[in-house]
């Protein structure tokens, strides 16, 4: 794995390695397991879906919200319908990989990381673009939150 600058978050590296080590059919099962692990939204989002940002690049509805705490760690909240397991799977991967990670590390994740999950053979290009767009929106929200925190 070649990386200039900041290292990838440790859990993200593990996930990338797990996918790379699996044969293609097992990669789909792994993604399915991720989709089942996406935690439900806390009440403050479940009852206020307007606080979640839509990710229209995904063909299925996907919503995401980011919080940065006083220790500058990122907390991620995402939701997608059960009938869109692939979308849920990508959301769960980013949740596991980035939740609790320092904001600077999240911002340093390269934009092509979805392409490193060894899923290009089995998942359509539009899906992978959706995952890339999800990361871009997470990072943009992190940047906005940092700016807001500095002004406060």
């Amino acid at each position: 794995m070649t990386m200039a600058g900041s290292p990838l978050p440790a859990r993200l590296v593990e996930i990338i390695e797990d996918f790379a080590a699996s044969p293609p059919r097992d990669r789909l099962e792994l993604l399915l397991e991720f989709s089942q692990s996406l935690p439900p939204l806390p009440t403050r989002y479940a009852e206020h879906p307007e606080r979640l940002e839509p990710v229209p690049e995904c063909q299925s509805p996907l919503f995401v919200a980011v919080e940065v705490d006083e220790d500058r760690r990122v907390h991620l909240f995402a939701d997608a319908p059960a009938e869109s397991p692939t979308t849920r799977g990508f959301a769960a991967i980013f949740h596991q990989a980035l939740d609790g990670v320092p904001a600077e590390e999240v911002l340093a994740v390269p934009g092509d990381v979805a392409a490193r999950l060894s899923l290009a053979e089995v998942v359509s290009p539009l899906r992978l673009r959706g995952a890339t767009a999800l990361l871009a929106r997470i990072q943009r929200q992190v940047r906005e939150q940092l700016v807001t925190a500095e002004r406060a």
Binding site: L28, L31, L32, E83, P85, T86, G89, S124
Partner: peptide, 9 residues
């Protein structure tokens, strides 16, 4: 399906 995982659910 559009979603490759949906059948498996």
């Amino acid at each position: 399906d559009e979603d490759i995982l949906l059948y498996d659910t």
